[in-house]
Design a protein around this nucleic acid. Structure first.
Lengths: 208, 208, 208, 208
DNA sequence: GATGAATGAGGGTTCATTCAT
DNA sequence: TATGAATGAACCCTCATTCAT
C-alpha cells in the first residue's frame, strides 16, 4: 500500500466517522438542535478539526441527507424483479423492516427532515417521481390482471412505508408496546411476518 | 365579571398563546432546536415576559407534551363503546386520521419526542400500560369469538397507529406522493376510506 | 425628569459610548481589523451586551460612517456665505484644520474607508455631487470676475482637502516632522496660517 | 545557470509574489484585518507553505513596510541634484505623483501604518531625520538667496507630501471628484501640471 | 520543499435566563 | 406587570501557527 493510498484511507475513515456522527446527532436533534461540538466529539475530533473536513453545518446536513437517500433509494419503491406480487410485496416489507431495525437513526434523520417540511429534500424529490409512478404502474398491472384486489396504488405504497418505517421512527414506543427494555432485541422475524401478512391480506393475497 | 376573573381570563389567554407557540416550535425544531425567542415572538410576547409565565424551556416542553397526550389520550387506544369490531376499528381510524390532518404539529411534536428516545415521555408511560392492555384484551375477545382473524393485538395496534400517524408526521411526503402543493387540501375522506378498508380486510372484516 | 426620560438618557449615553468606541477602533484598525471585543471593552460593555444595542459589526460600521459624514458635511465644501474668495477659502481651511486636529480619528475613519475603495461610502456619494459642483461653480465665478487666478476648481478643492486632512491622517508623521512628542500639542495657529497663505498665494490672493 | 542559481531564482520569485500579495492585503485591510490565508492565496501558496517562507504575520508586515520605504526613500525628500528650486520642486512633485498613481497600494500601506500611529515605522524614523533636515536646509538656502518666498520649510515639505500622496490614498475620492469610473485612467499630466503650478506659485516661482 | 492535519485562541453572534425597575 | 438591561455559556466558524510526513 502506497503512502498516498494510506492517506486516502485515513481521510476516508475520518469522513466516515463524521458521517456517522452527523447521522446520529441530526437524527435525534434535528438540524437546528444538533451542535457541531457534539458531532465533532462523537467523531473523535476537535471542533476546528471538524471544520477542516467540512465547511458548514448546513452543508454537512445536506450531504448526509443526500448520502442516505442515495444509499437507501433502492428500497424506496416496489421493485419489479419478480412478476409475482406476493414476492414483490413480501420482499419490500422484509427489506424495509430489516433496514428500519438495523439503522433506525438513518430512518429518523429522514423522518425529521420530512417533519420539518422537507426544505432540503424537496429540492431533490423530482428524482423520485419516476419510482413512485413505476411502482404505481406495476400495481395497476396486477389489479387489471386480477392478481390483487383493487387498492389505491399511491396510498398502498404510503401505507407500507408508514408501517415499516414506524419500527425505526417510533422505536421507543415499539419497545414500550412490546414491553422491551432498551437493551433487549426486537424480534425482527415476528414483525416481518406480521406486517407482511397484514399487507398481503389487505390486497387479497393471503389465504390464511 | 369581576376584575379578578378578568385577570384570570387574560392570563389564560396568554398561556394558551404560549402553548400554541410552543407546539409549533417544538414540533418543527425539537426541544434543542427551538428557541424561546421564537416561541415568545410567536406568542406575541417579549422574551423576559415569556419567562414571567414559564420557568424554563425544558419545563415548557414537558408541560406542552403532557398537555397534548392528555388531550389526545382518548384517541390512543381502541375504545370499547361498541361491541362491534368493525365499528370500533373504523371509528378509531377515522378519528385518528382526522386528528392527524387537523393538528399535524401536535402529532409531530409527539413523534419528535419518541424519535429522541422519549426521555420525558417514558416517565409518564406507565399510565398508558392499561390502555394498551385493555385494547389487547378487547381484540383477544374478538378473536376468540371468531369475529376477526387471529392478529397480534399489540402489533395490530401499532400498525394502525403507524398508518394514521403517517399523514401528520410525513405530511410533506404525502403531498409529494399525491402530487399536491402545500396549499392544496388533502382529501381526508379518500384516506379514511382507504385506510379503514385496509385494516378491515387485514382482520377479515371486509367482504369486498 | 421623568423615569422615561432618564431611561432614554441612559440609553443615549451608551449609544454615544459605543459610537465613540467604534470611531476609535475602526479608525485605527479598519472594518476587518476592528474587533467587537475591543469596541465593547472601550465602551465599557460586555460583548453580548454590545449586541443588545447593535446588530452587527458591519451595520455599526456603516452607521458610524454615515454619522460622521453627516455631522461633518458642512465642512466638506467651500461655503458661499461670503462673496469674498479670500474669506471663503480662509475659513474653509481654518475650519477643516481645526477639525482635523480636534478629531483626527473621525478623519482617519473616513480616510480608511476611502483607502479601501469606499465600498460603503460610494453608495451615499451621489448626495455630495451637488456640493462639489456648487463649489466649482463658485470658483469659476471668481475666476471669470478676475478675483482669483485660473485654477482647476476640482483639483483645487482636492488640494485643499488633501493638505488640511493630512494633519489628521498623518498626525504621527506630522509630529515627527515637527519634532513633537505624542503628548505635545500641535501648534494649530501656525499650521492654519501657513496653509492658508499657501492656498491664497496659489490663487493669487496673497500680496505678501 | 547552475542548479543552485535556479533554486535561488525560484525562491526569489516566491518571495516577490509574497511581497506583492502582502502589500495588496495590508494596504486595503491593515495589519489586523489582513489574513495570511488571503496573502497566501494571492501569492499562489498554501497557508503552511507561506509559513515556510515567512515566520509571522507581524514580521511579514514589518519587512514589507521596511522594503517599501527603502525602495521609496529617494522620493521622500527634495533632492539637491540641481541648484534650481523650480527644477527641484517640479521634479519632486512629478516623481511623487507618478509613483502615487502607479503604486497606490504602496502609498496606502504607508498611510495605514502612519494612521495607526506608526508603531512599527517610528522605530526606523531616526534614519529619516537627516533627510528632512537636509531638505529644510536646502530651502532655507533658497530663501536666504531670495530665490523663493519665505515659507516654512517643514510645513512646505509636508504640504507637498500631502497633496501628492492624496492621489493614492484617496484614489476612490479622486475618481468621484473627477467623475471617473474605476476602470477609466486618471489624467496624470493634468494633475502634475496643476499641482506643480500650485506649489511654484505658493513659493513665488510661477510667473503665470 | 510542500502537503495534510492539528490546535488553541479568538472571531462575531445568539442563547436561556435573571434582575432591576 | 412588563420592560430594558445584563450575563455567562454556548453557538458556528476562522484565525495564525505548528508539526508530522
Amino acid at each position: 500500500m502506497t503512502a498516498n493510498a494510506k492517506l486516502l484511507d485515513r481521510r476516508q475513515k475520518i469522513h466516515l466517522a463524521i458521517r456517522d456522527a452527523a447521522i446520529e446527532e441530526f437524527a435525534s436533534k434535528g438540524l437546528d438542535g444538533a451542535s457541531t461540538q457534539a458531532i465533532a466529539r462523537r467523531a473523535g475530533l476537535s471542533k476546528p478539526q471538524l471544520h477542516y473536513y467540512i465547511s458548514t453545518k448546513e452543508e454537512l446536513y445536506e450531504k448526509t441527507l443526500l448520502f442516505i437517500i442515495n444509499e437507501w433509494s433502492d428500497q424506496f419503491f416496489l421493485s419489479s424483479v419478480s412478476d409475482d406480487p406476493k414476492t414483490v410485496i413480501s420482499e419490500y416489507i422484509a427489506t424495509k423492516i430489516r433496514h428500519a431495525l438495523a439503522q433506525p437513526q438513518v430512518c429518523r434523520l429522514f423522518a425529521n427532515e420530512v417533519a420539518r417540511g422537507a426544505p432540503i429534500l424537496r429540492r431533490h424529490w423530482s428524482a423520485s417521481r419516476e419510482g413512485v409512478e413505476r411502482a404505481a404502474e406495476l400495481m395497476r398491472g396486477w389489479i387489471e390482471a386480477g392478481k390483487i384486489k383493487a387498492v389505491d396504488p399511491y396510498l398502498f405504497q404510503m401505507e407500507m412505508w408508514a408501517v415499516t418505517q414506524h419500527f425505526a421512527d417510533y422505536e421507543a414506543q415499539v419497545r414500550f408496546m412490546l414491553d422491551l427494555d432498551d437493551d433487549q432485541p426486537i424480534d425482527e422475524e415476528r414483525i416481518i411476518t406480521d406486517v407482511t401478512a397484514l399487507f398481503l391480506r389487505a390486497c387479497g393475497l393471503d389465504n390464511s
